[in-house]
């Protein structure tokens, strides 16, 4: 068994890259099973908790979304370096999915121009605030094209039961087995 908090709880993280949060909603769709899991794990980083820094020594990181910006690149690398098991959670992380539809347009500029240079807008301009707004990548990547991924959990979003199975396996120190539990789309 890997990373444990002082209280003996597994250190779990969830990460939100370029996605719609639907995969996180599926995690919440564990419903009352969340109450059973609560005493057994520490959610050390997640949009649902107040940690600002991705911490060291994480047992499992569930990563939603594709890699769309420079900020995602930096975060995904840190997640990889600091987590024993990295799970690509959902089709955006696994394949790029909807988040990668803009790749067909050949770069970030066309999507930005369409949204912000619309002559109907007041002060049309491309948002750019170095150090504050991360630059978009020209090509959206599935997670495994940037960092090694240990487990792929497809679905848009993956079913709550599949997420539950992964968490139970991790808490029991088993390598998750997903045969028959996954779907795409």
């Amino acid at each position: 068994m890997g990373a444990l908090s002082p209280a003996g709880r597994a250190r779990v993280a969830t990460v939100w890259l370029g996605g719609c949060s639907g995969c996180h909603m599926s995690l919440l769709d564990l419903d009352e099973r969340l109450l059973e899991l609560a005493p057994r794990l520490d959610l050390v980083y997640s949009p649902l908790v107040d940690a600002k820094l991705f911490p060291e020594d994480v047992e499992v990181a569930l990563v939603e979304g594709a890699v769309c910006s420079e900020a995602h690149v930096e975060l995904a690398r840190r997640v990889r370096a600091r987590s024993r098991l990295v799970v690509a959670l959902g089709d955006c992380a696994v394949t790029g999915n909807v988040s990668a539809l803009r790749n067909a347009l050949g770069g970030a500029l066309p999507v930005l121009e369409r949204a912000y240079l619309d002559p109907g807008n007041l002060q049309p301009q491309l948002p750019a605030a170095p150090g504050l707004l991360p630059r978009l990548l020209d090509r959206v990547l599935p997670l495994h094209q940037l960092v090694p991924v240990d487990l792929f959990l497809p679905g848009c979003p993956p079913h709550a039961d599949a997420i539950h199975a992964v968490l139970l396996d991790v808490l029991a120190g088993r390598r998750p087995a997903l045969q028959g539990k996954v779907r795409f789309g």
Binding site: G18, C68, A71, L101, R102, L105, V111, L112, L132
Partner: peptide, 14 residues
Amino acid sequence: FHVTEFRGFERFCE
């Protein structure tokens, strides 16, 4: 309050 992400739906639906 800064929003730091953009996915570009308006353009790629075209």
